[in-house]
Design a binder for these strands. Sequence first.
DNA 1: GATGAATGAGAGTTCATTCAT
DNA 2: TATGAATGAACTCTCATTCAT
Lengths: 187, 187, 187, 187
Amino acid sequence: MRKRDDEKQHSIKKSVIQLILQEGFQGTSISKIAKLAGVSPATVYIYYENKEVMLRDIYQEYAEDVFDSLLHHLVPDMSGEQLIDVLIRQYYQYILENEEIFHFVDQFSSCPSLHEGCHALQGPKSLNRILLEYKERGILNDFNNENILSILFYPVKNIAIKPRNAEASSDELLDEMISIIRKALLK
Amino acid sequence: MRKRDDEKQHSIKKSVIQLILQEGFQGTSISKIAKLAGVSPATVYIYYENKEVMLRDIYQEYAEDVFDSLLHHLVPDMSGEQLIDVLIRQYYQYILENEEIFHFVDQFSSCPSLHEGCHALQGPKSLNRILLEYKERGILNDFNNENILSILFYPVKNIAIKPRNAEASSDELLDEMISIIRKALLK
Amino acid sequence: MRKRDDEKQHSIKKSVIQLILQEGFQGTSISKIAKLAGVSPATVYIYYENKEVMLRDIYQEYAEDVFDSLLHHLVPDMSGEQLIDVLIRQYYQYILENEEIFHFVDQFSSCPSLHEGCHALQGPKSLNRILLEYKERGILNDFNNENILSILFYPVKNIAIKPRNAEASSDELLDEMISIIRKALLK
Amino acid sequence: MRKRDDEKQHSIKKSVIQLILQEGFQGTSISKIAKLAGVSPATVYIYYENKEVMLRDIYQEYAEDVFDSLLHHLVPDMSGEQLIDVLIRQYYQYILENEEIFHFVDQFSSCPSLHEGCHALQGPKSLNRILLEYKERGILNDFNNENILSILFYPVKNIAIKPRNAEASSDELLDEMISIIRKALLK
DNA sequence: GATGAATGAGAGTTCATTCAT
DNA sequence: TATGAATGAACTCTCATTCAT
């Protein structure tokens, strides 16, 4: 009996993510994926029940990725300033360094018809605990976590995604963003 | 009086936007659109050169819509607090009241392969002028407009889109969000 | 607007029936059908919702055919001998002259998974009335119609279908069959 | 004691026959068969060269089955009445008790493209000898064996297969059928 | 302008079969 | 022997688009 070739599955995943960025969900077919991954179309169905399940599985695998990256860079006893700096800067960094994955996850989650049926992510839960702690220690203002998370990540995502059209350099924007959000969230 | 033509085209547009929300870009075909709009597939091609152009045209028509709505609610000589309140509250309101249009525009613009080739929007330019004015009058902090816009609209979009899962009511979240952003942006 | 081309549909039907005889249900694909009919695969779906419906529709159209042929050859006031002679001989004749249609109908109806969901045939009802009349006139023995019909048609079908392997000529077999069945059914 | 091998092959055969009844030849694939039989698709190819051979082999194994059953119930020196009674009643019984096998064999043999290339059955030969004997003893009318066999088995098959829709009970029909055929075939 | 018919191309998926263990 | 992995070919069906009226 042959055993499953993990490289094959990995190659399929990579191809999916790459194609979604290049061609969008519309332009991404099983046969294109298979061709790019160097396998037969039928092989895709060994690893995934069907196209929908495949996309959802891959989404759920990588949706946690950003959070892992963020949590990995947090260290105990950071100051409030440091916490915000690390979270935002790291999020920004992640987007730049993982363009394909990020856009795949982003496109997927902005499409209600794809998104429904996905189970909730784990990553935000850990973050919620950390925010709670900083609030209890009187460092963060006592806002709802949903608002805090929205303010922490969605503006920076926007400036990371958009192609810069002069006016201000990316670094300047990011630094300023951090200082604005510090002012907003810290006591 | 509306001409018959316009009714047909309007019906097509409505069908496109409705289907994109229900089924996503993938599940939206010309024949489904035509069926829902009550016209022949061939009729669609009288109004639009092809599917890609159709989507882009409709996108560009509605992409300005939010901004029109926002600008329409601004009055001269508002205080900084009022400005932020109106912009955020109105944006939130727009999303709730125009769910289909909003998601169509949002999905479209989060897909690079669709988005490229679209000419820049007019709406942000007007907003930029207004923000500039408030900065010059010493009401808004002197941040880059890109950062200001990112903070004004992206967090609230996030809380408007997500289905509420208890913890805090939508109204409470929105009120809090406004106060956070006021604190961040106003002097 | 183009109108439907009846020749196209007829050509599809002919191709289906021909292919089923040559290759069986297994070897009959939409693309083979389309190729033989000289149309595009997509055209088949203009006339039939899907393959299953197509086969069922064609079956139901031709399933009545034999009965029409039989009824067409009956004339009023035939004797019992004549009635049986005409029914059996004509049935035999029909099978020989409509080999493809007959085998299509026969194969279809011997496959339970295809057959279920087909509405009952009209043809037997007319025959039932006629048999009833001959029974009331004291010409036919008073057997159940189901038995009479089974004896009238199923043995002759068997000798019509099987390739003759000498022993007796087809004509002799048929003549003998008629005399046996006359003996069995007539008073 | 049965060897493990035979169990696997038997399990495959059972699955084939079951699936053919439920789903027809079209809906019966090697992988479905393997799944139902609890073996790997590759295992099927240890026992059968390919799908066509598999179906033919299984057909030829079971095609004799009915005849074995019939011959097994014949005893020497039966009267003509008894002979016909046993043959018809037993045939009827066989169909009811072996629905899956019977339909598999029936569907297979009604499909010319499958049937060709099968070697002739043994069963009919034994029956032929018996019929000959009864004819020589002056009990059966001197008809061609082909006609006798057609009349003996094809009508009863028809009433055994069809779901009863009132009018007459199955038992009544069967009894009547036997008496009709006795009248037809016996001196 | 408006239509339903028509289509080649391609979609997602399953097929019968073989490979490697 | 027995297996699950792997596959090219073929499947049914739908697509975006054009044709003919």
